[in-house]
Simulated scan of single mutants.
Amino acid sequence: MGADLNIDWQTAAASAIDWWREAGVDTLVDEAPRNWLAAVEPAKAAPRPGAAPAAVAEIAPLPNTLAAFEAWRLGPDAPEAAWPGTPIAAQGDPTGDVMILIDLPEREDTDSGVLMSGAVGRLFDRMLAAIGRDRASVYLAPVCATRPVAGRISPEIEDRLNEIARHHVMLVQPKRLLLLGNAPSRALLGTDAARARGSLHGINLSGRKEAAGANDVVTQAVASFHPRFLLERPAAKAEAWKDLQMLIGTPNKSGSDT
C-alpha cells in the first residue's frame, strides 16, 4: 500500500506553471544576479504618445462678498462638502461689533442646526450674558462648518480651513474678535490659545503683514478657552473671565457667574 507513483510529471508541471501565471508570476528566474534586499523604486508609467500632461486642479478664488461667501460655505465647493453630516452656517448679526470664532460644531449641533448646543451652549450663553451680550448681538462662526467624524480638524485640511476663516473675518470686519479654542487661535494668530491669551492682538484685515496703512482695517482679537474646555477644567473660568473683560474693553474684575 503506498502512494500512486504513476504521475504524469509534464502535465503536473504545466498545471503548476499555469497556476502561477494566473497568480501574476511571469518570470521564474533572472539571468543577472539581484540584490533582493535593495530598495526598489516604484515604476513610473510612461506617458502615452500624444497625451497632454495632467492638468492641476485650480482652486477658485473665495467669494468677495459676505452673502456670496456664506452661500459658498455651505455649497458643493466647500472643503467639507463630501463629508457625512450637515454643514452649519454662521449665526447671529454680522453687522455687530463682535465676531466669535469657534473650531467646529458640537455633536448636539448636528441635530439642532444651532452652533454651541447642549451643555457647551448653556455655558456659552452665560459667558455672553456676563458681558451684557446674547447670541443675537454677536456673529458666531465655525472654522470647520461640518463636524469631522473624529471630532477634530485633521492636519491635512487645516491650512485650507485657516485660509477660509481669515477670509471670513476679513469680509465681516468686526471691531472685536473672540477666538475660542486652539483652532481659531492658530488660524488668525498662528499659535494656540493658551499662548495667545492674556493680551489684545491687532489683526490687519487687509491681509498685509506689514504695518497697517491709513486705509487698512484693523480688528482687535482676544484668544480664550473654548467652553468645552471650561466644562472639563472649571478652574480655568477665572482666566476666561479676564479674557471676556478684555474683549469688551473694561478693567478685569474678580469673579463671574459663568
Results as ranks from 00 to 15, higher is better:
Asp93Lys: 11
Ala187Lys: 10
Val222Gly: 01
Val56Phe: 03
Ala136Ile: 04
Pro49Lys: 13
Gly181Tyr: 11
Ala14Trp: 03
Val29Thr: 14
Ala211Met: 14
Trp36Arg: 14
Ser112Leu: 11
Pro76Leu: 06
Arg208Thr: 09
Ile157Asn: 02
Ala71Phe: 04
Leu5Trp: 09
Arg122Trp: 06
Ile17Gln: 14
Gly75Ile: 12
Asn204Thr: 03
Glu22His: 06
Leu205Cys: 07
Arg186Tyr: 02
Gly255Ser: 07
Gly213Gln: 02
Ala3Arg: 14
Trp241Asp: 00
Ala16Gly: 13
Arg122Asp: 14
Ala23Lys: 15
Pro87Gln: 10
Asp97Cys: 04
Ile248Phe: 05
Ser15Gly: 15
Gln10Tyr: 01
Gly113Phe: 00
Thr27Gly: 09
Gly181Cys: 08
Pro234Glu: 04
Pro251Thr: 10
Asp97His: 10
Ala67Tyr: 02
Arg122Ala: 11
Arg34Val: 15
Trp20Leu: 11
Leu200Tyr: 08
Ile17His: 08
Pro142Arg: 00
Ile59His: 11
Leu123Asn: 01
Leu177Lys: 01
Arg107Trp: 03
Ala196Trp: 04
Leu179Gln: 00
Ala193Glu: 02
Leu140Ala: 06
Arg233Ser: 10
Glu22Lys: 13
Val218Lys: 04
Ala89Ser: 13
Glu163Met: 06
Leu171Ser: 04
Ile203Asp: 00
Gly113Glu: 05
Ser117Gly: 12
Arg166Gly: 02
Phe124Thr: 01
Lys237Asn: 11
Leu101Ser: 05
Val138Phe: 04
Leu74Glu: 03
Glu163Arg: 14
Pro33Tyr: 03
His226Tyr: 10
Gly151Gln: 10
Ser137Arg: 14
Ala3Phe: 12
Asp18Arg: 15
Pro47Cys: 05
Pro79Gln: 08
Glu31Leu: 12
Asp243Tyr: 07
Ala52Gln: 13
Val98Met: 02
Ile157Asp: 00
Ala211Lys: 15
Ser154Gly: 12
Ser112Tyr: 03
Val222Trp: 09
Leu128His: 02
Ala150Tyr: 01
Arg228Ile: 01
Ala39Met: 10
Ser224Cys: 10
Asp111Ile: 03
Glu80Cys: 07
Pro94Arg: 04
Ala38His: 07
Ala51Ser: 15
Thr86Gly: 00
Ile157Arg: 05
Ile164His: 00
Gln10Asp: 11
